[in-house]
């Protein structure tokens, strides 16, 4: 990924010496979104300033992408799956600690949530998180240790259990443990889990990003799968940020800022909605409201006290996830 991006960047810099250039380092499921958005932004920028702009994309697992940037991939902007991965960049002083205040809405121009993908007709009658903890249900979800998306899944289940079980931590842990005991496979990434469920035919339910679930539905046909939206889920806020140090060096600060800001414009929001992300803009959101299921969403800040804390409590070594498997 890194190499490809580097080669692309190099090629582009030779061919388009006159135009400006950006490298957007993103995560896996945004590929289609940014392909469409980059074209729209280039058009907008040209009409506004007369300057040609090429936006190069790099996609991969969110954590791996962040590490590439840490190790020197020259990303002007990052658009990752979770704030934790951008926090890691801030820790190395690539951008300021309060980066999440640089753009509106926690620097998350679009949101998503966690839903279930089940087989057509929902033969196991899965309606909510508690159905996943029942014996005899095979749950497909990736490994939270290696997948950012899987961490949202885990926290979604946790948020549900906490409300349902009146914050009794022992009971919540037991509930989560039951769900993960039902997982025959823990793929290393979100796309891998989708493959396991869709292509290998394994499992009764896939816990997935809402946008991934709709994409899978679009790709493999609604005659095979359907989406179940749980009563409570977590508001996934995939954040965006300008990598200040790199942008300064490339002298692309203004362009990078405009690029991310345009995500909040009506056109940007519309593209997000078209790609099954939930738009922030109320007007655009209303337009796409009918395509999403009704769900009450909780935020990571409210329930878990932010990503840093959630990571330390649940996914660090010895955290609640490890405790499920520890004897």
């Amino acid at each position: 990924m890194k190499k490809i991006a580097a080669v692309l960047a190099l090629l582009a810099s030779i061919g388009l010496a006159s135009g400006a250039e950006l490298l957007n380092v993103s995560y896996d499921p945004t590929r289609e979104l940014y392909t469409e958005y980059n074209a729209a932004f280039a058009k907008y920028w040209k009409s506004k300033t007369g300057q040609d702009v090429t936006v190069n994309q790099s996609h991969g697992g969110s954590g791996k992408q962040a590490r590439s940037v840490l190790d020197g991939l020259e990303a002007d902007v990052v658009t990752l799956a979770l704030a934790y991965d951008i926090d890691a960049l801030a820790e190395k002083k690539l951008l300021p600690d309060d980066w999440q205040k640089a753009f509106p809405e926690n620097s998350s121009p679009y949101t998503s949530t966690i839903v279930f993908l089940v087989r057509k007709g929902n033969p196991k009658g899965i309606k909510d998180w508690d159905d996943l903890a029942k014996p005899g249900i095979a749950v497909i979800t990736p490994n939270p240790k290696t997948s950012g998306g899987a961490r949202w899944n885990y926290l979604g289940a946790w948020a549900y259990a906490e409300q349902k079980l009146n914050k009794d931590e022992a009971k919540v842990k037991d509930f989560i443990g039951k769900i993960y005991k039902n997982a025959p496979v823990l793929d290393s990434g979100a796309r891998g889990a989708t493959t396991t469920f869709v292509q290998r035919g394994l499992g009764d339910v896939l816990i997935a990003w809402e946008n991934e679930a709709y994409l899978a539905l679009k790709e493999f046909g609604p005659e095979k799968f359907e989406i179940v939206t749980p009563s409570i889920s977590i508001l996934a806020e995939p954040p965006v940020a300008v990598v200040d140090v790199v942008a300064k060096r490339h002298k692309t600060e203004d362009l990078a800022k405009a690029y991310l800001n345009y995500l909040y414009s009506e056109e940007g929001q519309d593209i997000a909605g078209k790609n099954f992300y939930r738009p922030r803009d109320p007007k655009v959101a209303a337009k796409y409201a009918s395509q999403f299921g009704k769900v009450s969403l909780v935020t990571i800040d409210d329930v878990f006290g932010g990503w840093k804390k959630a990571q330390a409590t649940h996914f660090a070594d010895g955290g609640t996830f490890d405790q499920i498997y520890a004897k």
């Binding site: 954590g63 997982a183 290393s188 996914f315 070594d317």
Partner: peptide, 22 residues
């Protein structure tokens, strides 16, 4: 492998898991 902790986790996978935690 399925990557189930204590059952089918190979050592290189745990290296990746560590990297994911930076």
């Amino acid at each position: 492998s399925g990557n189930i902790p204590f059952k089918t986790e190979i050592t290189p996978l745990l290296i990746i898991a560590k990297l994911e935690q930076y």
